[in-house]
């Protein structure tokens, strides 16, 4: 047996040993609430239609995330913008009809868009308008009567103006504490801003903030080749 063959055999034996070790390891992982929710539904639905078991973990996390945001909002009881000056990296200066928003810059922020994010296509969101350059994107999506404007942009040192005339700013925590905020317009729609992967994102929707926040959580890198 030459050394390459020995290495190949060693690799396979090591892998099998590792698998056996994992099988015999008595320690158990405490699966997340979202996972256990998916597991419950997946195993319960086995009897009906196996292929329906594709109720994804991502949708389970959607429900858990929405519940967390609802609980956070109740806990914080925020009703007035004036009570908030800083949320995570965001800071605000209140004006009469709008607010100025500033974002603390970090060295890890991207200077141009390296990968384009969007809504998960597999959930049925259809792109009805698309614009993208190296600094920002602006995409309109529709799904039934739901409409969303999604934006990704590099974080720049300029002032953002956001409409807070009839909306209170509420902090949210999508991936880490206070990494975003939401403006609930009280008319059924909202605007959500968050920072992730060195970019600033915005979701402007015509539906409630819980669902919008869940949608924000599930945005992902998308191949927009057809649109370039």
């Amino acid at each position: 047996m030459n050394i390459d063959e020995m290495i190949a055999e060693a690799l396979e034996e090591e892998f099998e040993e590792r698998v056996q070790q994992c099988c015999s390891d008595a320690s158990k992982h405490k699966f997340s609430l979202a996972y256990r929710l998916w597991e419950y539904r997946a195993l319960k639905n086995l009897g009906k239609n196996r292929r329906d078991s594709h109720w994804t973990l991502r949708r389970a996390r959607h429900i858990v995330t929405a519940a967390i945001i609802a609980a956070s909002s109740l806990f914080l009881g925020i009703t007035a913008y004036a009570a908030i000056a800083i949320i995570g990296r965001f800071s605000f200066e209140e004006k009469k009809e709008y607010s100025k928003m500033f974002i603390e810059s970090l060295s890890s922020d991207k200077t141009e868009i390296e990968e384009y994010y969007g809504l998960p296509e597999e959930d049925g969101w259809e792109v009805t308008y698309f614009y993208a350059d190296e600094q920002q994107t602006l995409i309109n999506y529709e799904l039934g009567d739901k409409k969303v404007t999604f934006s990704q942009e590099v974080i720049r040192e300029h002032t953002h103006h956001i409409n807070t005339e009839k909306a209170a700013i509420e902090p949210i925590s999508l991936y880490k504490e206070n990494d975003g905020f939401v403006l609930d317009f009280g008319t059924g729609g909202c605007s959500l801003y968050w920072i992730y992967d060195g970019y600033l994102f915005e979701l402007f929707s015509n539906f409630n903030k819980k669902d919008t926040a869940s949608l924000a959580y599930f945005t992902k890198i998308v191949d927009f080749q057809n649109f370039f």
Binding site: F31, Y35, L46, H54, T56, L57, R58
Partner: peptide, 18 residues
């Protein structure tokens, strides 16, 4: 990453089911 690992386990089982 435990969260990603859970995602993979889920994907694997969906594959197994099918």
């Amino acid at each position: 990453n435990a969260s990603d690992a859970e995602d993979v386990v889920q994907d694997a089982f969906l594959w197994i089911i099918n």
